[in-house]
Simulated scan of single mutants.
Amino acid sequence: MLAALDRHRVRDVRIAVVDPVHRRGQDRTWAFWDQPGNDLDDLLSASWSRVEVVTPHTHRALDLTPLRYAMLRSGPIYQRAAEAERRLGAVRIVAAAGRVDDDGERVLVHAVDGRSLLRARWLLDSRPRPPRRPGRTNWLQHFRGWWLAADRPVFDPARAVLMDFRTPQPARGVSFGYVLPVDSRYALVEYTEFSPDLLTGAAYDAALAGYRDLLGLDPARLTVTEVENGVIPMTDGPFVARPSPRVVRLGTAGGATRPSTGFTFSAMYRQAEQVARAVAAGRPPVPTPAYPRRHRWMDAVALRALDAGLVDGPDFFGRLFARNPADRVLRFLDGHTTVAEDLAVMRSTRLRPMVTATVADAAARIRDRLAPSRRPSWSVPPAVVDTELPSADASGQ
Results as ranks from 00 to 15, higher is better:
A95E: 15
R172Y: 00
L199N: 08
R73Q: 10
W48L: 10
L306K: 07
A90S: 12
E226Q: 14
L198C: 03
V10T: 06
I15E: 05
A95T: 09
V109C: 09
D34N: 06
S348W: 07
A344L: 14
G313P: 12
G254E: 01
Q26V: 11
L250R: 00
R144M: 15
A111V: 12
T261G: 02
R304S: 11
R323M: 03
G262D: 09
T261Y: 08
P325F: 02
R319A: 15
L370I: 13
H59Y: 07
R14D: 14
P157M: 08
R185W: 01
W139H: 07
L72W: 05
A209N: 14
V345D: 10
R99G: 12
T29Y: 06
A281Y: 12
A357W: 07
A256C: 14
L140H: 01
D39Q: 08
A371R: 15
D315I: 12
V240S: 00
I366Y: 06
N324M: 09
G98D: 03
A160Q: 03
A280I: 09
L67S: 07
A220T: 12
Y186S: 11
A111C: 11
A70D: 00
L198H: 01
V279K: 15
D34F: 05
V100I: 13
S395N: 04
S391D: 13
G230E: 01
V10K: 02
L162F: 15
V329R: 02
W147R: 14
A120D: 05
A171K: 05
L180F: 15
V248C: 01
D299G: 02
A276W: 07
D299N: 06
F265S: 07
I15N: 02
W33F: 13
L180Y: 13
V385P: 00
G89Q: 06
A160G: 05
T235M: 04
H22M: 08
V301E: 03
V179Q: 09
Y69W: 13
R86K: 08
V329W: 09
R92L: 08
D327T: 04
D103L: 01
